[in-house]
Design a protein around this nucleic acid. Structure first.
Lengths: 229, 229
DNA sequence: GCAAAAGTGTTCTATGTACACCCATGA
DNA sequence: TCATGGGTGTACATAGAACACTTTTGC
C-alpha cells in the first residue's frame, strides 16, 4: 500500500419504495439504483453512484449532483451516512469515501433514468458489489430503519397529499412488520406532524379515506446543530 | 477558491469529566483539550487536535494516534462524528475534515500532557476557535448528550469499579440535570449492564455504597453493522 | 443518637398494544 | 345488503416520575 494522500470521493445510497415484481398488491419494498463500473478495479460490477468532489461544492452538493447526474433524480431527504476509510477497501489506490443517503418519492423514482449501466435493485437482495459497498448499503439500511422509528423521514417517500394508510404502508415496508392501523393513526396524529385536509381520496373500492399533508413547521428529522446542507 | 482535490484531515473532540475550578464538590463538568495553532491560518488560535492521515492507517487509527500524540491519552470510546466539508471552512486551501469524538477517564485525563500549546477548556465555555471548530464541538456535545440517553457510553468516563452514585453523577454532569437516585438505580439495574461486586467503597462519611463493574458482555453502544474500528 | 447517603416500596401517569366495534362507500 | 377498509372506543400492560420510607454507616 502506498503512503500518498488518500483520494476523496462521495457516494450516495438512494432509497425508493416500489411494488415488488411478484406481487403488485404489496405496498412496496426498498429499491436502490446502482451503476455498473466501466473500468478497473471491479470493472463490470455494480456500485453505488459516486465520484470526486468539485472544487466549489460542499460534500452534500456533490452527493446531490451525483444523484442528479446518474439517475436524473432530486431527493426530498439527504443526509450524511458515514466516512469509510479503511486502508484496504480499494485494491489499487487509497480511497476515502464520504457516503450520503437519500430518499426519493415513488413518482420520481418511476421516471428515473435507467440504462445499460444504471439499474435498480431490491435493497435486501443485492448482488456482490464493488469495494465495500455491500457493507455500506447494510449500514444505510440500518440507519434508515432506526431513523424511521424516531423521526418523520417516512414523509420523504410520499407526495404532497397522502392517506394515513399510505403513510402506514411506508412504515410497514421499511420496518418489515405490520402496524395496527388504529394505533398508528393515533400515534401519528399525536405528533402533530400531519394536518388533515378537507379532501378525501375517491375512486377506492370502499369508504374514501381523508387526505393529509405534512406539517411544514416540523423538520423531517432533528439532526442537531449541524450546519444546514 | 481553487478547484484542486481537497486536502483530507482527521480531528478529534476529546471529552473528559473534571471538577470545576470554582467548586471542588461538584461531580464534574465536561472538559476537552485543544492545541494552539503554530502557523497560518488562525495562527495562535486554539483548535481541535488533528492532522493528516497516514498511508497505512484507517481513519479511526489516525484519530487514535492523534489523540495519543497530542495528549498522551488513550480513550475507552472512539466514534466517528461527522465529515465537515463546506468550501469556505478554511480560508486558504480546501480542507475536508473527518472528525471523531472520544471519551477518556478522569484518572487518564489527570495525567494528560499539558503544555504551552496544549490546554484543557470547559466544553461549554470555549474561546473563539480556529476554522469551524466551535460548531464541531457543539455538534459533538449534542451527540454525546443524545447518545448518553440511549446507550451505555457513560461507563467510558469511569474506572473499573464504581458506585451507582458515581455513575449517576456522570449522567447528571453530561445531561446537566438532576436524576432521582432511586429511579436511576432501578433503571440501570434493569438493563443488566452493570454487575454488583462483593466490595463496598469504604472511607466515605456515611453508609458505604456497593461497588459495581461493567458487564462486559454488552458493548458500550450499538452502532449497527459498521465495521469494527 | 444524629445526619446523610444507600437502598427499597408504593403510587400515579403517560405511552404503547391488543382488539372490539361502528361508519361509509362501491359494487 | 354485503364486503371492506376507514375510523373510534376501551381495557390492559409496561415504563417512567415522584416521593415516602427503611437501612447503614461515620462522627
Amino acid at each position: 500500500m502506498n503512503s500518498q494522500a488518500p483520494t476523496l470521493a462521495v457516494s450516495t445510497v438512494i432509497f425508493a419504495l416500489r411494488a415488488t415484481d411478484s406481487d403488485e398488491a404489496t405496498p412496496g419494498t426498498l429499491w436502490l439504483p446502482l451503476v455498473r463500473r466501466i473500468r478497473e478495479p471491479f470493472e463490470g460490477r455494480w456500485a453505488l453512484p459516486g465520484g470526486p468532489i468539485g472544487g466549489d461544492e460542499s460534500l452534500a452538493d456533490a452527493a446531490a449532483r451525483n444523484l442528479l447526474e446518474t439517475t436524473s433524480l432530486t431527493s426530498r431527504y439527504l443526509e450524511q451516512l458515514y466516512a469509510f476509510g479503511t486502508v484496504d477497501r480499494s485494491p489499487s489506490q487509497r480511497v476515502v469515501s464520504i457516503v450520503y443517503w437519500a430518499l426519493v418519492r415513488p413518482d420520481e423514482a418511476e421516471r428515473a433514468a435507467e440504462s445499460e449501466n444504471v439499474r435498480w435493485f431490491a435493497a435486501d437482495d443485492l448482488p456482490s458489489l464493488a469495494f465495500d459497498h455491500n457493507t455500506i448499503v447494510e449500514y444505510a439500511l440500518w440507519r434508515l430503519r432506526n431513523k424511521m422509528e424516531y423521526s418523520r423521514i417516512a414523509h420523504a417517500f410520499l407526495g404532497e397529499r397522502f392517506t394515513l394508510t399510505q403513510l402506514r404502508e411506508v412504515y410497514e415496508a421499511v420496518l418489515r412488520k405490520p402496524l395496527d392501523p388504529a394505533n398508528f393513526r393515533r400515534q401519528i396524529e399525536s405528533t402533530k406532524s400531519v394536518v388533515a385536509t378537507d379532501e378525501r381520496l375517491a375512486g377506492g373500492r370502499h369508504r374514501p379515506p381523508r387526505l393529509y399533508r405534512y406539517n411544514e413547521s416540523f423538520d423531517l428529522a432533528d439532526n442537531g446543530p449541524l450546519p444546514v446542507l
